[in-house]
Amino acid sequence: MSAPMYAAFAANAFQTRLAYRNQAWSSFFGQLIQVFARIAIWMAVYAGVASVDGITLADMITYAILATAVMGVWDHALLMRDLDVAIKTGDVAVFLLKPLHYPLYLFAAHCGNLAFNTLAVVLPVTLIIGVTYGIQPPASAMHGASFLGFWALSFAIYFLLAMTCGLLAFWLMTAHSLEWFLTGIMALFSGSILPLWFFPPALAAVAQYLPFAWVAYYPTAVYLGKLEPAETGLILAIGLGWAAVLAAGVGLLWSRARHRIVVQGG
Results as ranks from 00 to 15, higher is better:
Ala175Leu: 02
Leu100Pro: 02
Leu227Gly: 09
Tyr209Ala: 06
Pro99Cys: 05
Tyr105Asn: 00
Leu240Trp: 09
Thr174Ser: 15
Ala19Gly: 05
Phe212Glu: 01
Pro211His: 09
Ser154Val: 04
Ala237Cys: 09
Gly239His: 04
Gly130Glu: 02
Trp42Gln: 11
Ala47Phe: 11
Leu83Ala: 12
Ile61Pro: 09
Trp214Met: 07
Leu114Ile: 08
Ala243Gly: 09
Ala216Asn: 12
Ile61Met: 11
Ala47Trp: 14
Thr174Glu: 15
Ala10Leu: 02
Phe159Asp: 05
Tyr20Gly: 00
Pro200Ala: 12
Ala64Val: 10
Leu79Thr: 08
Ala145Leu: 15
Leu178Ile: 11
Leu246Ser: 08
Thr56Gly: 05
Ile55Tyr: 08
Leu57Asn: 02
Trp42Asn: 11
Leu227Trp: 04
Ala11Gln: 13
Glu179Phe: 11
Leu78Glu: 08
Glu228Ser: 13
Met60Gly: 00
Met186Lys: 04
Gln34Ala: 14
Glu231Ile: 13
Gly112Ala: 06
Arg38Glu: 14
Ala44Asn: 12
Cys111Ser: 11
Met186Leu: 15
Thr220Cys: 15
Ala109Thr: 13
Val215Glu: 04
Leu153Tyr: 05
Arg17Met: 12
Ile128Met: 10
Gly191Thr: 02
Thr56Phe: 08
Gln23Ile: 05
Pro124Ile: 13
Val131Gly: 00
Val73Gln: 11
Trp242Lys: 03
Phe36Lys: 02
Gly134Thr: 05
Asp59Gly: 00
Ala207Leu: 11
Ala221Tyr: 00
Gly72Gln: 12
Ala213Thr: 15
Ala86Trp: 14
Gly191Pro: 11
Thr56Trp: 09
Arg17Phe: 11
Asp84Met: 08
Ser26Asn: 10
Val94Gly: 00
Gly30Val: 08
Trp151Pro: 00
Met71Phe: 07
Leu148Glu: 01
Leu97Thr: 14
Phe198Tyr: 12
Phe155Gly: 03
Asp59Gln: 03
Ala202Ser: 10
Asp91Val: 09
Ala139Met: 10
Leu97His: 14
Met5Phe: 07
Tyr46Arg: 01
Met71Gly: 06
Leu148Val: 15
Leu96Pro: 00
Val125Ser: 04
Ala257Ile: 06
Leu104Tyr: 10
Ser177Asp: 10
Phe199Ile: 01
Leu224Tyr: 03
Ser2Pro: 15
Gly241Arg: 06
Pro138Gly: 07
Ile261Gln: 09
Trp242Ile: 04
Ala109Glu: 10
Leu224Ala: 06
Ala156Arg: 04
Asp53Tyr: 00
Tyr102Val: 10
Asp53Ile: 03
Ala156Asp: 06
Gly249Gln: 08
Ala86Met: 14
Gly249Trp: 05
Val245Glu: 00
Thr164Arg: 03
